[in-house]
């Protein structure tokens, strides 16, 4: 059995509307895949279903993460098992400091009775924050509370760097970022690329993929992957627009 995040024939709906209509996709460990698609194609739904958001009903299909049935696990279990979602709209948690939040997340991964080494924790966190050019004052500030769009996205990447997942899904991490912030975020992701990790980068624009160069690009339309190809597919899409794919589909 090869290590991968393997999604097969996934059907999911919200309030009776089917959004994912038999989606199949496999991300082998060590690769970066991108999903592009027009608004409303179900990209964000896919990310939320993978994370375990209860607003969505999964009626059919399987998701295996290195052989483990992801859909059988609670939201927090998926995270501890090595799944990570960088949110498109990260939530604000007033009164809970960023440091305490990260610490609790790491603590939850330790066996009962074992305590996090606070000194090592802060050292690691500061290193990662420096890499993301985040001011250290963010450790004491409430999670995402009063953060700008760019600061929130950087905070997502910081969490990913701290939690070191096996598979990470980045949901429109580029939205709301200026070019400098985009480069910093991409650099953070690139540093984590390696044979022990898989990525799924969800984006509407090709711009992000200039900085996080994918191994495979998938096009999603109406709840399904309709086309897959190399990184050049992203450029083709940018040039010709999503209509090109839909027209091509209609012809086929």
């Amino acid at each position: 059995m090869s290590d991968s995040l393997k999604i097969e024939n996934l059907h999911a709906s919200v309030e009776g509307n089917e959004i994912l209509k038999g989606l199949t996709l496999e991300i082998p460990k060590g690769e970066v895949h991108a999903i592009m698609g027009p608004n409303g194609s179900g990209k964000s739904t896919l990310s939320k279903v993978l994370a375990g958001n209860e607003e969505y009903d999964v009626s059919e299909g399987t998701v295996k993460m290195d052989g483990v049935d992801l859909l059988d696990l609670e939201v927090d279990e998926r995270s501890r098992e090595g799944f990570f979602l960088a949110f498109q709209y990260p939530h604000e948690i007033p009164g809970v400091s960023n440091a305490n939040f990260l610490r609790a997340a790491l603590q939850a991964r330790l066996p009962k009775g074992e305590e996090i080494d606070a000194v090592a924790f802060y050292k690691t966190m500061y290193e990662k924050m420096d890499a993301l050019q985040m001011d250290r004052k963010f450790t004491g500030r409430s999670v995402n509370d009063g953060f700008s769009g760019g600061e929130k996205k950087r905070n997502e990447i910081l969490q990913m760097m701290m939690l070191e997942p096996k598979y990470a899904v980045l949901d429109e991490t580029d939205s709301g970022l200026d070019i400098d912030a985009l480069k910093i975020v991409a650099e953070g992701v690139n540093r984590m690329r390696g044979p022990e990790r898989g990525f799924l980068v969800i984006t509407h624009y090709q711009r992000l993929l200039d900085y996080i160069v994918p191994d495979v690009v998938h096009v999603m339309v109406d709840g399904q992957i309709v086309k897959s190809g190399g990184k050049e597919l992203a450029h083709e899409l940018e040039e010709k627009g999503y209509d090109w794919v839909t027209e091509e589909l209609a012809v086929a």
Partner: peptide
Amino acid sequence: FYLQARGIP
């Protein structure tokens, strides 16, 4: 959901 998605029960 946000906290849970980071592994916190």
